[in-house]
Design a protein around this nucleic acid. Structure first.
Lengths: 140, 140
DNA sequence: CTAGTTGCAAAAGATTTGCAGACGT
DNA sequence: ACGTCTGCAAATCTTTTGCAACTAG
């Protein structure tokens, strides 16, 4: 049994062709962050028969099943209302997006994570989730 | 001359009725974060004659002129593709959104800001902008 | 006067949904 | 066989744009 199948079953999802294709693509592509359309195109280009609506549906299911993470990065200019998805490998990390190249760098900082917890606590809350994105440009 | 006028002129924008209304609303409302539609409705309800398209246009101009800041918060459930705006009072701050009440709390933490700079530098970048949102719930 | 603005309606872009047929177990 | 999926097209939602009329300076 291929690796993707068990992950799908574990998530309570039937092992269908589209679901397996999408999961496989995310696991093997070198571009870790893809939009629904990126995924749709990549699969169609590779000769798969799949609908864009299905890609969106599967991605939501994967997100609910915690197989993927969804992000909405600004493209700096404010436009880009497009969500992108990446495999959820368990360990949390934040992102840095280069406004010139579009490059996405992942990072994790213990100190910041701790401060975030403290700040939430100081206000009487506890963190459910958080997002932190640094929009950067190459240092001259 | 009313306060809004000079701010508009300083930004190089003609002092028109819609622009003055929107700026005034943002300066006086107690709900600091409003969507374009919130603003449109608030003005129409108060009897002003304004178009939604104008609200969007004016908000972009204000954003470009650094009179307001635009944010796109997840509503936790992933829906909310809606941007909200707040007056840009100069001093930067981040946000904490309560997923149960929708309440938005602003905060600023020197230590986190410093770490962010360092992290960007370590990767050969410099920060242009950043967004950090903590999605929280009341501590039990 | 005249360039910058506005409102309306239509367009656009991303994502969702209804439905009949196809598929996994 | 049966309930779950899927693809397509149409619908939705937010935001943007074209354009003729209007207005601030």
């Amino acid at each position: 049994m291929a690796g993707e199948s068990s992950e799908l079953k574990k998530a309570g999802l039937k092992v269908t062709h589209p679901r397996r294709q999408i999961l496989r693509l995310l696991e093997t592509t070198e571009q870790k962050h893809m939009t629904a359309d990126d995924i749709y195109r990549a699969l169609v280009d590779r000769g798969e028969e799949i609908g864009l609506a299905t890609v969106y549906r599967v991605l939501s299911q994967f997100e609910a099943a915690r197989l993927v993470r969804k992000h909405v990065f600004d493209d700096g200019t404010g436009r880009s209302q497009q969500a992108c998805y990446e495999l959820d490998e368990g360990e949390h990390h934040d992102h840095m997006v280069c406004l010139e190249s579009g490059e996405v760098v992942e990072f994790f900082d213990e100190a910041i994570e701790r401060r975030q917890e403290e700040i939430a606590r100081e206000h009487g809350f506890e963190i459910v989730d958080h997002s932190m994105v640094l929009y950067v440009k190459p240092k001259k």
